[in-house]
Structures are given as structure tokens and as C-alpha cells.
Design a protein around this nucleic acid. Structure first.
Lengths: 144, 144
DNA sequence: TCAAAAATTTAGCCTTGGCTAAATTTCGGC
DNA sequence: GCCGAAATTTAGCCAAGGCTAAATTTTTGA
């Protein structure tokens, strides 16, 4: 019996999962928008070198989230798709929640990306409830 | 002329700053609650070994956020105090904001710690505005 | 077609932040 | 004052995620 992933603190794992979510989410987005997900584009989107992107993708392949043949475009496994979809969902809720409070588009975009990984299911459902009760209101609090 | 911090991507720096904020905030809290900040307590609070805590503290000493004599308790420099105070302030707002939405105490505590580092000044001020308009209401949305 | 360009991968380096083991210093009690 | 316990520090290991340089493979255009 091989012991895998011997040394991992919870915090390390958390950071780990965030990266995984960011990458599968991006791949899903590229697949939708461009029809395929190339390493070069991924690297550009994250602002890192292709080498760095490659390393992370290689890890996620080992974890069976991403699949691909050498030198070819990337795909998501069913596990990867599931993660991407859930992650995207969370992202959307956080983004729309911030927008509904009156946070400007560009700011909401950036903040949502940072925040999404730290929102528990409970808080997320509260954000959702808030959204439902604020339909059609983009800025529920008066402008000033 | 020595070049310091040659290699640092923005993302790395961001993660870096988060750790710094967590540590100075914790030290300020321990100073307030216990009168002094010992490495052992910091390690316990973060759930890491004293060795890991020591390494991070050593880095923050190099960055002039923390000061101490060898084998002695830790203090914050004025730079460290400033960072801790600002960080604490952000934390408080995020926490109270979540609570005002109806997020349970324990959940809000955890989520606030994750979220606080990713809230831009603009979003933070919107949270503050929201709070002002919801004084004395702990759960502005009906329980269900 | 086939050579140059582009994309991907590999090799090798670095820092951070995890750990354990072991050394050192300080503290507490007798 | 001193000895053992506790706390701190050092040494040395590992993985992740940065990088550049260089090798390899695929794509493209003349």
C-alpha cells in the first residue's frame, strides 16, 4: 500500500484546492469561449509563465482533474468538470451579490475571485437568499 | 547597491502580505489579551509547529514588522502596529457585515478570516455603509 | 515540403511554508 | 544555585509554485 500525500497541513490543502479551482474554472471558460484550452492562454490569463502553468496543470493531471495528450490541448475529467461547475456557481453568486450591493463591475470581478474560495456553504446560501430578495435592484442602497 | 526581493510575482506578494497580516494581527491580539506574544502561543493559534511559526516570524522581522530579542517575546514595530490595526479593522467590518446578514457566529468568524484579505477598499466601504443602515438589526432578512 | 515560428515540455534554480530532530536558552521549583 | 522542563532556535528534509534556458514537438507559411 502506497501512502499518498503524506505531508499536508489543512491550510496547505486549502491553498492547494484554491489553485485547482482557479485552473479548472479557467479551463472550462476557455473551452466554452474558444473551443479549446491551450496552456499558453491559461498562462496568459493567470499572468504566469507557461512553465509555471504547465507544472500546475501536471499536478492537476496527476489528481485526475485535467486530462490531455502531450503537446495537445487540455480537457477536464468528469471530476474536473464537476469542480469547475461548482466553483463557477459559487463565483457567480459572490459576484452578483457584490453587484447587488452596489460594488462596481471591475471591483466586483476582482473581489469575487478572491472571496469565492473562502465562502462557506452557509454564507453562500445567505448570499443567495439576499439576492432573491433583491431582484431587479442593482443598487439597493441609495447612491449616497 | 544590493537588489532586494528580486523575484516576486504579484500573486506571490499577495499571499505574502496575507500571512504578514495574519501574524501581526495575532500578535496584537495576544499582546492585548495576554500582555505578551510568545511564539508557542502563536504557533498554537495557527495550528502549526513552533518551527514554522518561527520561520515566518523571522521573515517578518527582516521586513521590520516584528521586533524581538532572541528567545524573548515578540513585539510589533510601528509599521507592524499600523498593519495590524488596519487588518483588524477590516476583519471587524467583514465579520459584522456577515453577522448582520444572519451568518452564524462561528461561521462568520471563519469566513471573515478568509474573506478579509480579498476585500478591496471600495467593497469594504460598501460593507460599512450597509452596516450603518442596518444598525440594531442582527438578521435583517426574516429567519426563513 | 520543409524551415522557421510557436507551443509545450524538461532541467535546474529559488523562496515560502510545512515538518521532525536536535541544540540552545530561559524559566520554575526546590 | 541548580536541574529539569519549557521555549526557542538551528539544521535539514519536502512540495508547491515562481522563474529562465534549453530541448522537443507541432503548426504555419512561403
Amino acid at each position: 500500500m502506497v501512502v499518498k500525500q503524506r505531508k499536508f497541513s489543512k491550510l496547505r490543502q486549502a491553498h492547494h484546492r484554491e489553485k485547482a479551482e482557479d485552473y479548472v474554472e479557467m479551463i472550462q471558460e476557455l473551452l466554452g469561449k474558444q473551443g479549446e484550452a491551450r496552456l499558453t492562454d491559461i498562462a496568459k490569463q493567470f499572468g504566469v509563465s507557461t512553465v509555471t502553468a504547465h507544472k500546475i496543470v501536471a499536478r492537476l493531471q496527476r489528481e485526475r482533474l485535467i486530462a490531455s495528450k502531450p503537446y495537445r490541448a487540455l480537457f477536464l475529467t468528469s471530476k474536473g468538470k464537476k469542480m469547475a461547475t461548482q466553483s463557477k456557481h459559487r463565483h457567480e453568486i459572490v459576484y452578483r451579490f457584490l453587484r447587488s450591493l452596489g460594488v462596481p463591475e471591475n471591483v466586483a470581478q476582482v473581489d469575487a475571485e478572491g472571496i469565492e474560495h473562502h465562502v462557506s456553504p452557509k454564507t453562500l446560501s445567505i448570499f443567495q437568499r439576499f439576492l432573491k430578495r433583491n431582484v431587479n435592484r442593482n443598487q439597493p442602497l441609495s447612491p449616497d
